[in-house]
Every structure is written in structure tokens, then in C-alpha cells.
Design a binder for these strands. Structure first.
Length: 644
RNA sequence: GGCGGUGUAGCUCAGUAGGUUAGAGCAUGCGGCUCAUAUCCGCAGUGUCGGGGGUUCAAAUCCCUCCACCGCCA
């Protein structure tokens, strides 16, 4: 099979388990993968970026049953949420694989059979601790209690020891091969410290791995022995093969396999750095180049977890700031291998200072000056002086460094480098004071040179930030009068002087609005929702319900809240008076469609200040896949009527 | 308990083939500019480089030891 002459780059995220709603952790991994993909495309690689969902297993089976759904219905619902979030974040994946897809299941079965024929998979007896009430085997690594028994971590009841027939993968046979592989490929696991952990784990000896269950029905059946179900890891890991076409589109598969990098969270390192290469060795597939384990985002210094209830939902940030600020923050704040701390203060600080003050303001002042002093079009410029040349040469050097940092997955360093250059351009403007030359007609061409130089630098910057901030990058590009998508450029073609004279600059709008902390936090509070634990219903009494004053409201006036994507300021007549409220529904409803409509509003909710505006009431809406749907009255009801 | 890592300015961190007064960003203070999103530019600090000991003409950087925190394993 002849490989394409272009170099290929195949990057994967883990497939996300559909019993969980997408949160900042999922977003982080996927954003890293997206930025690296975009960089590699600009660098001329043929890129394949795979993400998707892991949909089998007992947890899904149970979660679905609790909700009165079938597993696939639950999966379908969660998949939409993931896809929506990726769309909002501008994730440019090439394929979204679901482990319930037919070709994936067939691919896994085929490999299973192959390994069984090679006797790398054999039938045996699994002894383990089983929790009767949860109908679940306990994870191997749960320690014994003092009495030699084990306790189920989910329900706290004592588990019993049972045996069942199952298939094993002969992992023990791969200990030496794996250690040899690690020695000959020392950068297989990144960062290095994780490689050390892997090696020391394998050195301690590997036990064969049970890879099927009879107690789980929701999964891929073992071929020719369907009472056994293939256990999730053997199923899930093979998505990296089936997702690029294994067994269905071999041309694509052979073009992209082996993967360049599997991006993972450190919790699943063992599966990717030990089990996965062993499976691949057994089936005679080449091994991936790198498994890159990234760190965690902590929330206010503590680990985010479902049980702590401090899992960060990215939607609030996205509503206020759009995707690029979040992408920038996550990639700029920490190197990929380390943990980071997410606080709203830190986020806002970074975004205001780097995006609004430095880059946003640079774009704004440059474009505005060209607009004001040249009517948007620079026609003639003076010869390049030394100081102008320095700015141009500095860009070349920055571009090379940024390229190398991106190549090394050091995205934070690349951004630091770019921001160093942004400061340099701001300094260049301060030193040359173009606003002073503007009063002197004889200085017109010198003025033109200075602004030309600044615009060229800005154009270069917009290219360099593209992997991290595709939307803002393209915006700046467009403002500078470019008419092509930025992806048409590459590191090879991008020139400092690419900004050509006579191009009409578009009138700019603030790229990254500054947001004040107290407004942001108020909005966060107003949006924080208590989600009842699955399977539990927190009842309230009728007396408690009566405390909520619900009224029919008539919408009088609606306007957009400046500087936000989603917020509308709505004046609503509640019979006795008109109240204003702020609501994040601009994606779903246009202001003109709302006026005159009647709906239900809460009028005794403590007012909150959102983006500087006091919200004195709240409307009711269904939240469906993060879209708000408002129930309106069809009948003609008087404003102010009580609703109960 | 075993293996690995980290501890440097108020905060986040950079800095090891040992070498002149230990750096950056943010935060703080002062000054300048007004094209720009109260933005931008300049200047100014501050540190027993976790503690102790050692090697060396010279150590944040090498060695020993102790303390604290983190990760993996048991």
C-alpha cells in the first residue's frame, strides 16, 4: 500500500463514556487534540483527528434503566450533548466514532477471533469479588478489609468471592516484549515521568487479563459464544483502529495507522501504555508512536468529581466569552503534562489581560488608526527603516520558535512566544507614535509604513494563534481585508509582507470584551443549578412550593446585552409593574419574536446583577441539550395572573 | 513500606555539561502617552533559590541527610 506522499498525523482523544455529561475535562483533552490537529494541517500534514464515545458496559445499562430508557436511547442523548459542545468549541474532528456502530463491533469481533485462534485469548475461570446487590464485580485494585473480605465501594455492602467462566488475554506473555519496547522507544509515553510509572508497573509482573463478562449484556458478544460479552476495555481501545476504517476501509486504515499520538488523561494511562500495545502486538499491528498523558484541571485547588459536585460545566464560560477564550486559557495556563488550577478569578484575569488588553487592544488600535488616518486603505508607504525591519525579522524568528513549540506539543510555550511578540508590536507603536504623525500631511508615507508594519505583524499573529483560537484568528484575518480562509495559508507560505497595500480594512469591533469579575461571578451564581443525584428525588413540601411566586408575564421590550452572545435584557409586564430580567436565550430566540408573548416568570427570586444589569425576575424554560425552550401561553391570559 | 517527582520573588513558574550583581509573567508603586476595550509604553523594587552538612577557587545547579507536598505501586 503506497502511503500518501504527504506526512500523516493521526491523533485521538479517548472515547468518552456516555454515563457522564461533558465537562471541562472532556473539553480540555479535545481542545488539545484540536489545536495540535490544526497546527499539523498548517504544517502540511495529512491529519486525521478521531474522537467519539464509549457506549457499552454495565454502568450504561444501569443508568439507562434508572431513567426508563434503553441503553442506546441514553447513549443517543448524551452523544448529542458531546457533539453540540464540540461544535460550540469549534472542534474540527474528522470522525466521531461510537462503539455501538456496527462496523466497530464487527472489527472488534474479528480481532477477538484472530487472537483466539492464535491462543492469545483463552477460556478460563475468573475469580473475583462480586457485589450481589449491585450485580457487579469489584475492581481488582480495591483493597481487602481487615477481615480479608472486600467491600463494594458503590453500596458499602460486603462482597462475596465468586468464580465465573470468562475469556482471558495472555498479558503475562508480553511482559518482556513490552519492556523491550519501552527501552527501544523511550518517548512512547509522555511526559517522561509517566513512562517511569509504566515501566515500574510492568516490571512488577503482569497477570492475564479477563476481557469478557457473562454478567453484562450491554456490549459486543463474543463471536461463536454469545453468552459472553466483551468487556469494555478490549472493546473501547480498538476504536482507534475501527475509527479510521479498520476492516471496512483498509486504504484509509493503512494510510493513518499507526497513530501518531493517543491523547489521554492520566487515569487511563495503564490501559493505553500497557494493555493497548500488548493487544496490538498480539494482533501484529504496528504500535502507536506516543501516548501522551495530560494533567487534570482542579477547581479551586480541589479535584473535580461528580460526588463532590464541583464539576465545571463549560457552558457558562462559553456563553459569556465564546470558545476562544476558554481554548486559550486551557492551553496557555499549563504545559500539557501538568495539573492546573481552574478558578474563575484566574480565568478572568488571564483572559482580560492577555486577550482583551494585549491582543484585542492591539488589533483594535491598529485597525482603528488605519481607518481614521487612511480611510481604511493604505496606498503608499515610506521605505523600511531599521526599526521597521527589526519588527519584520523578529516575526520570522518568532514564527520559527512557535512552530517548534507546537511541534513539541508545548502549546503554552508557543503562546508565550506569540504574546512576547504582541508586546513588541505594542512597544513599536508606542515608540513611533503614529497618532502624532497623523497631524502632519508631509508624514503621510512614514505613517503609512508604521501602520503597514503593525498590520503585517497583526496578520502574522492571527496566523500563529489559529491552532488555539481559530475563530478570533479568522476574524482578525478578515478585518485585515483578507478574503480567504486562514487554513489556506501554511507555515511555508505565510509571509510577513503578505498584507498588501490598497486592501480595504474592515471596521473593527472589540474582539475580546473585558468582563468585570463581580459581573461574571454573579452570572455564574445565577446559573448554578443543583442537579439531583441520579435515582434520588429531593421532594419539597407544598408549603415550600407555595413560596415561589409564579406569574404570567407579558414581554414588552427585548434587547441584546452588549458584549455577550447569549444574554437578552427583557422588560416584562407582571400586571402591577414592569420588571427587567436578563436571560441567556439569545441563541434560541430573536428579540423581535419575543415581544408580545406571554410566559411564566418567577417574581420573588432574589434579584441578581448580571453583566451590570439587575435581573428582577426569571423566566421558565426547558433545557434540552443546552438549548432553552420557553413555554408560552396559547390562550389570552392577563399579565400578572398567578400560576400554580 | 517500595519507586519516582517537586519545594526559587506576594502568586504562577523558568533557570543543571557549577561561573560575573538569580530571571519572566501577573500583582504592587511611580512616571509617560492618548491611536486604542480605563487600554499601551517606561522605571522601581522585594528572594537566607525548603532546612542542615559536604565537594569545589566557585553551587539554585553535584553528593549526603532531614522536613514538607505530590504521583505510581503494595
Amino acid at each position: 500500500m503506497a502511503k500518501n506522499s504527504k506526512k500523516t498525523f493521526y491523533i485521538t482523544t479517548p472515547i468518552y463514556y456516555v454515563n457522564d455529561m461533558p465537562h471541562i475535562g472532556h473539553a480540555y483533552t479535545t481542545i488539545i487534540a484540536d489545536a495540535l490537529s490544526r497546527h499539523k494541517k498548517l504544517a502540511g500534514y495529512d491529519v486525521f483527528f478521531l474522537t467519539g464515545t464509549d457506549e457499552h458496559g454495565q454502568k450504561i445499562e444501569k443508568a439507562a434503566a434508572q431513567k426508563g430508557m434503553t441503553p442506546i436511547e441514553l447513549a443517543d442523548q448524551v452523544v448529542i450533548r458531546f457533539k453540540n459542545l464540540w461544535k460550540t468549541l469549534n472542534i474540527s474532528y474528522d470522525y466521531f466514532i461510537r462503539t455501538t456502530q456496527d462496523f466497530h463491533e464487527k472489527g472488534v469481533q474479528k480481532i477477538f477471533l484472530k487472537l483466539k485462534e492464535k491462543e492469545v485469548i483463552y477460556k478460563g475461570v475468573y475469580k473475583g469479588w462480586y457485589c450481589v446487590s449491585d450485580e457487579n464485580f469489584l475492581a481488582e485494585d480495591i483493597p481487602e478489609d481487615s477481615d480479608g473480605q472486600k467491600t463494594c465501594p458503590d453500596c458499602g455492602k460486603k462482597a462475596g468471592q465468586v468464580s465465573e467462566e470468562c475469556y482471558f488475554f495472555k498479558l503475562s506473555a508480553y511482559q518482556k516484549k513490552l519492556l523491550d519496547f519501552y527501552t527501544s522507544h523511550p518517548s512512547f509515553v509522555q511526559p517522561q515521568s509517566r513512562m517511569n510509572e509504566v515501566v515500574s508497573f510492568v516490571r512488577q509482573g503482569l497477570k492475564d487479563l479477563s476481557i469478557t463478562r457473562t454478567t453484562v449484556k450491554w456490549g459486543i458478544p463474543v463471536p461463536d459464544d454469545p453468552k459472553h460479552t466483551i468487556y469494555v476495555w478490549f472493546d473501547a481501545l480498538h476504536n482507534y483502529l475501527t475509527g479510521i476504517g479498520y476492516d471496512l476501509n483498509l486504504a484509509s486504515f493503512e494510510k493513518f495507522w499507526p497513530a501518531t499520538v493517543h491523547l489521554i488523561g492520566k487515569d487511563i494511562l495503564r490501559f493505553h501504555a500497557i494493555f493497548w500495545p500488548a493487544f496490538l502486538m498480539a494482533a501484529d499491528f504496528p504500535l502507536p508512536e506516543t501516548v501522551y498523558s495530560h494533567g487534570w484541571w482542579l477547581k479551586d485547588e480541589t479535584k473535580m468529581s461528580k460526588s463532590r459536585g464541583n464539576v465545571l460545566d463549560p457552558h457558562l464560560i462559553l456563553d459569556v466569552f465564546g470558545p476562544d477564550a476558554l481554548r486559550y486559557f486551557l492551553l496557555r495556563e499549563i504545559p500539557i503534562g501538568l495539573d492546573g488550577n481552574f478558578s474563575h478569578e484566574g480565568f478572568l484575569h488571564r483572559v482580560n489581560s492577555d486577550l482583551a488588553n494585549d491582543l484585542g487592544n492591539l488589533a483594535q488600535r491598529t485597525l482603528t488608526m488605519i481607518q481614521n488616518f487612511f480611510g481604511g486603505k493604505i496606498e503608499k508607504i515610506a521605505k523600511e527603516r531599521d526599526i521597521d525591519k527589526q519588527l519584520r525579522l523578529a516575526f520570522v524568528s518568532v514564527k520559527n520558535k512557535v512552530f517548534r513549540f507546537y511541534e513539541a506539543y508545548a502549546i503554552n510555550r508557543a503562546l508565550e512566544e506569540i504574546w512576547g511578540y504582541i508586546n513588541q508590536v505594542n512597544k513599536y507603536l508606542a515608540e513611533n507614535e503614529p497618532w502624532k504623525l497623523a497631524n502632519d500631511e508631509s508624514q503621510k508615507e512614514n505613517l503609512g509604513r508604521i501602520l503597514y508594519q503593525a498590520a503585517s505583524a497583526l496578520r502574522g499573529i492571527s496566523f500563529l494563534i489559529f491552532p488555539v483560537m481559530p475563530e478570533s484568528s479568522q476574524k482578525i484575518w478578515d478585518y485585515l481585508g483578507e478574503s480567504t480562509p486562514i487554513e489556506k495559508e501554511s507555515y511555508a507560505t505565510l509571509k510577513f509582507d503578505g498584507f498588501s497595500l490598497g486592501k480595504k480594512i474592515r471596521k473593527p469591533k472589540a474582539l475580546f470584551p473585558r468582563v468585570k469579575l463581580k459581573d461574571f461571578l454573579a452570572e455564574e451564581k445565577s446559573k448554578t443549578v443543583q442537579i439531583p443525584k441520579e435515582g434520588h428525588m429531593d421532594y419539597i413540601t407544598f408549603d415550600e412550593f407555595k413560596k415561589i411566586d409564579l406569574r404570567v408575564g407579558e414581554i414588552i421590550k427585548v434587547e441584546k446585552v452588549e458584549g455577550t452572545r447569549k444574554l437578552l435584557k427583557i422588560d416584562v409586564n407582571i400586571g402591577t409593574e414592569t420588571r427587567q430580567m436578563v436571560s441567556g436565550i439569545a441563541d434560541e430566540y430573536k428579540p423581535e419574536d419575543l415581544v408580545g408573548k406571554k410566559l411564566v416568570v418567577v417574581i420573588n427570586l432574589k434579584p441578581a446583577v448580571i453583566r451590570g444589569i439587575e435581573s428582577q425576575a426569571m423566566l421558565l424554560a426547558a433545557e434540552i441539550d443546552d438549548k432553552a425552550i420557553i413555554p408560552f401561553f396559547i390562550e389570552d391570559v392577563p399579565a400578572g395572573a398567578k400560576v400554580k
